[in-house]
């Protein structure tokens, strides 16, 4: 039996140190959630669509349909979403409508990135 196995056979399932470690890790895991709740989300102003290295920025205030490489992206009522795509997984379509600065929808197989750009306050525009 390996030394660590022997050690485990002797030990209890939870010790005080366990409790401390778990609490610390739990707090670290929940920190991002607190930040999200405290910092108000910025409404997006425009959307940046990047495909194979080229980016185009469209304003969110105008309804538009953008077709790239078999994917149909709709800008409607200040929100953006993949209406349809002929990719295998369709994760992009499942993402649904995005509208907050920093939100994104991505089609990895086709290298299409759709990102909402705010006015730069929270680092959402690059």
């Amino acid at each position: 039996m390996t030394p660590q196995a022997e050690q485990l056979k002797k030990s209890k399932i939870f010790t005080v140190f366990d409790g401390i470690l778990i609490t610390v890790v739990l707090i670290l895991c929940l920190l991002p959630l607190f930040f999200q709740l405290i910092v108000p989300t910025k409404k997006g102003k425009s959307v940046k669509i990047t495909h194979n290295g080229t980016s185009t920025i469209y304003s969110l205030s105008q309804n538009r349909i953008v077709e790239i490489d078999g994917a149909v992206i709709k800008i409607e009522d200040g929100k953006v979403f993949f209406e349809s795509n002929d990719c295998p997984t369709k994760q992009c379509v499942h993402t649904g409508k995005i509208y907050n600065a920093g939100d994104s929808a991505i089609c990895m197989p086709k290298d299409i990135r759709v990102e909402i750009v705010g006015d730069g306050f929270d680092g959402s525009s690059k």
């Binding site: 660590q4 050690q7 030990s11 366990d18 470690l21 890790v25």
Partner: peptide, 11 residues
């Protein structure tokens, strides 16, 4: 391993 259980290590 003497002080911490496998549960927290796994977490």
């Amino acid at each position: 391993i003497k002080k911490i259980g496998v549960v927290s290590i796994s977490i």
